[in-house]
Each structure stands twice: as C-alpha cells, then as structure tokens.
Design a protein around this nucleic acid. Sequence first.
RNA 1: GCCCCGAUAGCUCAGCUGGAUAGAGCAGCGGACUUCUAAUCCGCAGGUCGAAGGUUCGAAUCCUUCUCGGGGUGCCA
Length: 639
Amino acid sequence: MPGSPSRGASIHLHLLMSTQTPNNTTIDPAAILDARFKDAIHAAVPDLPIEQIKALITPSRQPKFGDFQSNCAMPIAKRFQMAPRELAAKIIEHLDVASIAEPLTQTNIAGPGFINVTLLPQAISDALSAMDNDQLGITPPDAPPTVVVDVCGVNLAKQMHVGHLRSTVIGDAIARLYERMGYTVIRQSHVGDWGLPIAMVVEQLITVEDQGTDLSTLTLADLNALYKKVQAACKAETKALELITKIGGHAKAEIELEERIADANAALEKAKARLISLQSGDERSVRVWQLIYDITMSACLSTCKRLHANITDEHSAGESTYRDELGPLVEDLIDRKIAEEDDGALVIRCDGIKEPTIIRKRDGGFLYATTDLAAIKRRVGKLGGDIVVYVVDSRQSLHFKQVFAAAHKAGYDKKTDGQEAVLFHAMFGTVLGEDNKPLKSRSGENLNLTDLLDEAVSRAGTTVAEKNPNMSESDRAPIAEAVAMAAVKYADLSTERIKDYVMNFDRMLAFEGDTGPYLLYALVRVQAIFRKATKQGIDTSNYHSAPFKLVEPSEKALALMLLRYPALIENAGKACEPNRLCSFAYDLASAYGLFYDRCPVLKCDDEALRNSRFRLCDLVGRVLGDALETLGIPTVERM
RNA sequence: GCCCCGAUAGCUCAGCUGGAUAGAGCAGCGGACUUCUAAUCCGCAGGUCGAAGGUUCGAAUCCUUCUCGGGGUGCCA
C-alpha cells in the first residue's frame, strides 16, 4: 500500500471491525454520550449515512465548559452548508441524555458550535460503582485475538545495553497491555545466537581452551570482552591500506598494515570454517556454543527478571531454532517463483520497495531477512498470531518493511484459516549519548544495563535511607530496588517510543516530578490511609458498597479521571503506545494529589462522605496499581 | 541521489480521530508540614509549536516546498 502511514494508530482497523462488538451494557458516560449523540445526529440530519456519523465526544478542557463536549456540529454543518450553531440546536432537540446529564439548552452551545455537557452527579457515581469490580471496567473481547510480541532480542556473548532495555521494557509493556485487554499473548525473544559473529567467539574459546584455559568459570563480561576482541581481530583494514598506498612513502606502515590484514583474513577464514563445523553439528563446537548460550541467557534472563519484565526461557526463540527451516523455506520460494536470482544472490522484489530483499548470498549463506521470514511463517502459521508486533529499533524500519512485504508476497502472513495477520513494527528511537550522537557499542564504556541498574539502586538507596532513617537496611533494600526499577522503566516508557532517546542518568534516575517514584508514592499514600484507619480504629468494613458522593471539585475530577481508564487501556494497547498509559497514570496520581490535599478522609466527620472517600481511595489504588502492573512497574507498600 | 524519522518554554518532554486561552516536569521565584507519608500540594514567571505558503468557521495536528538534525540504502546481524 503506497503512502501508508508509518505511525501505528490505524494498524488494527480491520481487526477491530472483526473482533470488537459494541458493548451495549457500557456504563462509561463518554460511550453513552457517544451513542446518544449519534442517535440525535441521525434524527437531525437523516441524509448523513449512519456509518459516517461521528459524535466527537471529548472530555472538556476546562470545568467551566462542563464535563464533556461534542464537536460534531461543525463538520456536519460544513458538509451540508448549514449554520453550525443552528445545527447544534437541532441536535440538542433530538438528544436524549436525561438519564445521565443535566438538561441541554441553548446555553450549552458555545463558540462556533460546541455542545457542552455536564453529567449528573448520580451518573458519575453509577459509572464509578459499575467499574468498581475485579476487571475495573475492562471487558475482554468475545473472541480474543492472538498477539505475538517480538521483544528483547539479546545477542550471545554480549551484555545487555540500553538498546535492549528499550526493547525489553517497551516490548513487555506492550505485551502486558494486550494481556490486560484480554488478548492471547505470546512473547518471542529473537535471540541472536547464530551466524558468523558467534562462530568467531566459539573459535576463539576453543583456541584458549586448547591453551589450557578453564571455560567453566567464564562470565558474560568475559564473553563480552572476547566478542569485542575477535570482532576487531577479524576486521580487515583494507581501506586504511588503500589510503596509505595512495599517499605513498610510508613503507613500514604499509607492511605492518598488510600483515594485520593478512592476520584478520586468516582469523575470518577460521571463523567461517568454525561456522560450518557448528552448523554441521560438530560435537565440540556445539558444546562450546551451548556454553556461550547458557552463560548469556542466564545473565540476560536474570536482568529481565530484575526489570520485572515477563521474559523467560520459554519465550526465547533464537535464530538457531530456525536453522533447519531456512533451506526448505528458500526452496519453496524458488519453486513458487517468488524469489529470483540476481547477480548470484537470491532476492525477493516487492512492489513499492526499491531495495530487493536478499535471502541468500552468492556463497549460499542465509541472511537475517531469511530468518525473519521463517519467524513470520512460524509466528503466524504455527503460533496462530493475528497480530505480530516487533518491538525493535527504528533503524530496522527498512528491513521490516522489506520482510513484511516479502512475507505477504509469499503468503506467509496467512493463518491456517486464510486470514491475513497484521505485521507491525513498533519501532523505537535510537539511544543517544550526551553528545546527541548514537551510542555505539564499540565506543561504549560503562553503559551496560547492569551497571545502569546498579547505579539506579544505589541512588534510590540513598534517598530511601534519607526518608526513612529508622528503617532497617534489610527493609530498605527491596524498596530501593523497586523505586530504582520504577524510575528507570518509567523514564523509558513515558516518552513517545519513536523518538530518539537521550541517555541521561540524572533524568532517568530522578525521583521527583513526572517520574516512576512519584507514582509509587501516590500509591503508598492511598494505602497509608487504610493502614492509619485501622490503627485509629476507624471502621473500614462498610465502604465497599457506599454510594459515591462527589462533593469537592477535586473529587469529581478524580472520579472523571478514573472513568477514562478502560477506554485508555484499549487505545494505548491498540496503538502499542505505553506512554499513553504513563500519561494517564501520572494524571491520575496528580488528581489524587490534589484530592489528598483538599479532601480529608480519616478526619471527615460525615460518615457517608467518609465511606465514599474510602471507596474512592480504594478504587484509585486499584486502578493505579493495575496501570503500574500493566506497565510492568513494581510497586511498594511503603517508601 | 533516493527512502524513512524527528524539530513544541532555558532543559527534558506531553498534546488521542483538526477544536475554545498549546500543557506537564526540571531549573527559577513565592507560599503550605505539632495535620491521611512534604519523594507532596498551591501560586508566579516562562511560547512566532523549525520557516514559508496552502486547505477552512478553526491547524502544533492535514497538504506542498524549504531549513536543520538523525537514520537507512543489494550480499554483517
């Protein structure tokens, strides 16, 4: 599809049509208003086809305009050459919102034709009561689609760095959002565990083992150092040689370079030979490879666990697991004339994409596009994915555009029932250094993920100790850990994922303002009220069924905020944008902050009002807790 | 060359299908703790939404051109 939007908002449209059934039992005032306005518009403008009617209901920006507004009158008036305010009046005449909103009159029409609606307090209370259940008002679809989420994607013999943080944290959050919506979610970590770079490391390890080194004590840090070393050793500096030869004169330098290049080429040849022995199942090669795999995955999965990311061994589907599928897959593509030979290589050409997708090199080797095609085939055909989301660096955008198109051409995006899966690259921005340049792993010192997390915990520990001088060290440690993870993860999740990301310790580990710790703190304050109540002997057994009484503006604002939760989860999930949920969580916490300041709970003399506030606090705590859980951010009971 | 992405307050960022006076946080200034946890709350100040055109009742948002920055671009992953 030429000119298709690269932003993900509309990716699931066809899916929505097929799986989403309108919920008639909704209590969400915004949804009710939407339905009622559509009816009224239809009555007022019968010529407008029903499927084109949009009620355009949005929360009002300012309290003086009421709680919600409909912006429907202006575009319709434009289309039918009517006066918008007159049309608005006509819509109001046909509008039946008596059960949930204050009666609408001419004074509700403002500006060019906005229709302002103020909800009845009872309607807000009823809606809150209705959402006060285990699901917090979120209803799963009747036939839940299956979503495969490509996350994490670590490489063997390499420590996780900040780029993996993004894929892991954002990917896990997207998976959690889908799970929260009731979809079936399958996480897949496409581990880079195959190919020449790994063979280089295997070759090197076998060499040092022959020299007497005990491999059983190796750590991931050792492997990482080794990886860099062999990468450098195999890199032939042919360009430098050309340059020196061109300038001429430096005979000695020229000879040195030639020697180095010869060494590099020799190392490369040995690595290639090792790759072949590895691929053919040579016992020793495989044993060393397995050792590298185990060391890497053990370290990375424990980092995932520490990050509170639900990525485990069962989610790992390394490139090596596709090795036996690549040959047959390529044969299939040749047989069906989807792939063609070009200059010795095998390529797939797709309409609208200039660059062909190379799936087999001239020397017969396969490439990462080949593996990714096999992955799509497995994820759609075998795992039954209706949606496959790739949470990968934006620099891979052309690659995925090619692979998706190639998969489509080959029909690998068709499920067994013939339905086409939605393939979506949920790209995220490059991690930049303080100098605004991409952090390259080559130049990278001190930016591996474990160091970052340790630093975060250390800083959090200092703050926790300051705030809780009387708390024991053993009590402080888990709090510091949770606060640190909340800070790091929220910093990563709260910005628009497509934008480049400037790596900044102070910002990432800040504990004040719009941060993860702020959200934890808000939750702690909710919970503290109930603890204190018990301590003071205040009865909290009756609030669960207490009617909501929304007296103060701040508690009404808090209530309206809560009601937005179910729709927000759905929108954030379908767009694969966890940052929207972050915004919501922050807004909710802020609304609670104001409520907390303005509305005493324990000291409230009116028992009915006190119970209402208890119930409101309880609901805030559960929604905020649910939002944090959906983001994958750990919580604490005190801090 | 071609393709993709970005540009909003001093700094870091929000801004959902075009809506009313563009919002937060940090930094700055001024207030609020014998009070449900002050990791908090309130107020002040801070803007030519990169530039110029266009579309219309209405544009940070859509279209065109341009500037700057980043990335990618046939045999690495």
